[in-house]
């Protein structure tokens, strides 16, 4: 009985699809193939081979035109540090003319992002914190979700990272590591005097940590434990938040701030910018390292 019903149903479906009629059956795939591709403007006008050739030439010409336009635009940019550079509007004018006097950093960009628009940058730091937290929630491995496959994978990783397999890397990292970390600290501490600042310095520090972890896995994991990671991250964010509250409170109410601007150009100047840069840098370095650690091992 069931077989009969199935058979009938199949017949019915075939009839609906046009079986036994004079017009040939066309499946959707065939229909799609018969229709010209929406991006093939020249369909049917040239032979297949010539058509492809036209498209190749067209794509190359388009790439060249775009590249040329971008390069031409670069030619028309104002020169770096030129005296007659356009000050876009009064906000920019204020930043450029009063920035050093009001905030005290010779790097105008850090004046803008850390004091005039400090709240915005605080949001960015919170985004980093949230991103690291989400990665931790999604990728963390502990005893409850570690499978035998994960353990085997980890053993293979340990084999790849073993001492005899990383001799070259270890000797080079031993040589380069101080330079990279010193450069990161330099960029962090000079954020208010020269190009750089919290985000770039933190990125350099984080990249250095990742490189170090690749060469001497155990040593880094020993001091960068989960405890230390949480402490640095939360402390940096709290410090940034409270400093920002203080700056806004005194700035908005015209109160006297005990953190002066100092002499522009000195390392201890520009008030809160340098400590904030250090906090942001630690935050960024921790986030980068945590991303790497969670994606590669699932734990710090």
């Amino acid at each position: 009985m069931t077989k009969n019903i199935k058979e009938r149903w199949r017949q019915f479906a075939a009839w609906v699809n046009g079986a036994d009629s004079d017009t040939p059956v066309v499946t959707p795939e065939e229909k799609r193939a018969a229709r010209p591709h929406p991006l093939r403007f020249l369909h049917g006008m040239l032979s297949e081979k010539n058509e492809m050739r036209v498209y190749h030439i067209f794509s190359v010409v388009m790439c060249l035109v775009f590249t040329g336009t971008l390069l031409l635009t670069v030619l028309y940019l104002p020169t770096f540090g030129g005296a007659g550079n356009p000050t876009e509007n009064e906000v920019m004018e204020r930043y450029v003319e009063k920035g050093i006097e009001e905030v005290g950093a010779t790097n105008l960009i850090s004046n803008i992002i850390l004091v005039y628009r400090g709240f915005d940058t605080f949001g960015e730091s919170c985004v980093l914190f949230l991103a690291a937290t989400c990665v931790m929630i999604l990728l963390r491995k502990d005893e409850k979700n570690t499978t035998a496959y994960d353990l085997a994978e980890r053993a293979e990783d340990a084999e790849i990272e073993s001492e005899e397999n990383t001799t070259v890397l270890r000797s080079v990292v031993r040589m380069l590591m101080p330079v990279i970390l010193l450069f990161g600290v330099y960029v962090l501490l000079n954020g208010h005097l020269s190009p750089g600042g919290g985000f770039s310095g933190g990125a350099i520090l984080g990249a250095g940590l990742i490189l170090f972890e690749n060469a001497f896995g155990e040593k880094v994991r020993r001091f960068m434990s989960e405890h230390v990671y949480h402490f640095i991250k939360v402390a940096a964010l709290y410090f940034y938040g409270f400093t920002m509250i203080y700056v806004f409170f005194t700035g908005a109410n015209g109160l006297h701030s005990i953190i002066g601007t100092g002499i522009p150009g000195m390392i201890f100047s520009a008030g809160v910018i340098m400590p904030i840069n250090v906090a942001v840098g630690l935050e960024v370095a921790c986030t980068m390292y945590a991303f790497y650690a969670f994606f590669s091992k699932g734990e710090l």
């Binding site: 293979e156 790849i160 397999n165 990383t166 070259v168 080079v172 380069l176 690749n214």
Partner: peptide, 21 residues
């Protein structure tokens, strides 16, 4: 100098991992 120190090491490490795995 930085590129000449790091580049070959990166190549070596990538190749080594490929050979090992």
């Amino acid at each position: 100098a930085f590129l000449w120190i790091t580049g070959p090491v990166a190549t070596h490490r990538t190749t080594k991992v490929e050979v090992l795995t």
